[in-house]
């Protein structure tokens, strides 16, 4: 699959503590500083205490760095990185409900899906749901091809992104665990049981 470079879009990846109100803090920051963002996704990581955010910004890297610097100030934000030129994998997922009530539309759909990493995941008498996964531009190209058939409904998850190779963007430190550990240690030093 062709990895197409995206133009004028930068990704900010943030690792945040998975605590109540963190998304609120980040949303409040974006609103207060009037940061314009394209998409924002939040999801679990392999560590239950840490969520990972991918923020897509329709602007230059300088603007993204401004966002990153402000995000970094939030106490619940553990790490922030701007993914600009470094090699990375990014994925967007789209669910697209399209018209498929005649042979022509069904054939065209199948033909287009064969050329993309797209699957028809649900077929009914009148409509079908397609799942398309790829880079943002690739997903957009696919949507452009499907559009003439007749899109009825669509949802995209927004970009998730990960740097290639051994550069690790993660942390094994989770505050709640370590806070507890510190308390226990200090309790033990004092000969007390928590």
């Amino acid at each position: 699959m062709a990895q197409q470079p995206t133009v004028n879009k930068v990704t900010v990846v943030a690792l945040v503590e998975n605590e109540p109100g963190v998304l609120n803090r980040i949303a409040s920051l974006f609103r207060r500083r009037a940061f314009n963002i394209d998409s924002l996704t939040v999801g679990r990581t392999h560590k239950p205490d840490i969520s990972r955010m991918t923020i897509r910004v329709d602007a230059g890297p300088e603007y993204a760095r401004k966002i990153a610097n402000n995000l970094q100030k939030l106490v619940n934000v553990i790490d922030v990185r701007v993914i600009d030129n470094e090699p990375h994998i990014e994925r967007d997922l789209a669910l697209i409900k399209v018209r498929s009530d005649d042979a022509y539309s069904r054939n065209t759909l199948t033909e287009i899906c064969d050329r993309y990493p797209a699957r028809i995941v649900d077929v009914g008498p009148h409509v079908a749901i397609i799942e398309m996964v790829g880079t943002e531009t690739f997903v957009e190209k696919f949507i452009d091809e499907v559009r003439p058939i007749g899109i009825i409904e669509m949802i995209r998850t927004g970009i998730v992104s990960m740097g290639r190779g051994t550069r690790i963007h993660d942390t094994s430190v989770t505050r709640r665990d370590l806070a507890r550990a510190a308390l226990q240690a200090s309790a033990m030093r004092n000969g007390r049981i928590v």
């Binding site: 106490v75 934000v77 790490d79 989770t174 806070a179 510190a182 200090s186 007390r192 928590v194």
Partner: peptide
């Protein structure tokens, strides 16, 4: 039980 945490705080962010 009151224990005041000693030493450095752990604030990865």
């Amino acid at each position: 039980e009151f224990i005041y945490p000693e030493g450095h705080l752990i604030l990865p962010g």
